[in-house]
Nucleic acid binder design. Structure first.
Lengths: 151, 151
DNA sequence: CTATTTGCAAATAATTTGCAGTGCG
DNA sequence: CGCACTGCAAATTATTTGCAAATAG
């Protein structure tokens, strides 16, 4: 995927519109960062985006990259892999299990399911690697948060 | 789950054995930390374990909690939620997708699957919350790492 | 006894923030 | 032309490490 890619121009245009309606300025830095992150499939860290963009724009700073990536996230143009700012959390459950994750409060509840332990994976994955196990994240809203919202 | 729980004693015994065969000492601190983490289902952070253990053992330090939790992880007594030490990574793919994760090199490859988008979840989850979407993590070894291992 | 382990304090790493100058609309 | 944005440097937060004293085996 390079800069001339129609997908990239489509997403850049999408961002121009989102930026306008959010009253956000279109700076050279923001466009470069956006082009870089859209053109990648390896889920880069802020640092990795910084290194790549700096080649074309040597004066850019790492904190601008951070600020811009969070801005893009807030505008719904990109997402993050896993939750924002994760601290290490420990899990005493050694059995193969799955998670229910509450999108409101971050609750993570384990559950077992023999069906989920070995789901048949798409044929196309053979080209990526060999699958060992499958883990399902069920996202939703937990009972407590659902009740709090009803009030 | 409290200290008298048979499950806790079973796991403590398991740890005593693992510790002996690894040539690791059984300190008061380690046993308290182990009891605390085993007795919880909320996947606590090191900080949370520290706060809880400090009630019974006021002189314990946060770094001992960290060292012990990683020790327990290395001994295979507990695991972590997500990979060790995660940096934020950004994902430009806004479509509902799933991940193939290589356990060797950390590669995360997106893939689509309409089947995986809405798997029927176990009835028991109704007691936990309302499910909105399902996301599958397929763990395994990617082609590159598999080839490297063959050499 | 003596090698591990602990607690303290200082070091790191990733990320965020305050501020003065710069540039988009 | 004014307010949002940038770059720099300094602050924060989570986690790790060096070291002298404490302790398990």
């Amino acid at each position: 995927m390079h800069s001339g890619d129609p997908e990239v121009s489509r997403r850049v245009k999408e961002f121009r519109e989102a930026a306008k309606s959010a009253g956000v300025k279109l700076t050279h830095q923001r466009l470069e960062i956006l082009r870089e992150v859209i053109g990648r499939t390896d889920h880069p860290s802020a640092e990795a985006v910084y290194r790549a963009v700096r080649v074309r724009m040597p004066t850019i700073s790492l904190d601008t990259v951070y600020r811009t990536l969070w801005l893009l996230t807030d505008l719904g143009v990109v997402t993050t892999l896993g939750p924002r700012r994760e601290v290490v959390r420990f899990d005493p459950n050694l059995k193969h299990h799955h998670h229910f994750v509450c999108m409101r409060c971050g609750l993570v509840q384990d559950f077992m399911s023999a069906d989920f332990d070995h789901i048949r994976v798409p044929e196309a994955l053979l080209a990526v690697g060999e699958a060992t196990s499958t883990h399902v994240d069920v996202r939703g809203v937990c009972i407590q948060c659902a009740q709090a919202r009803e009030l």
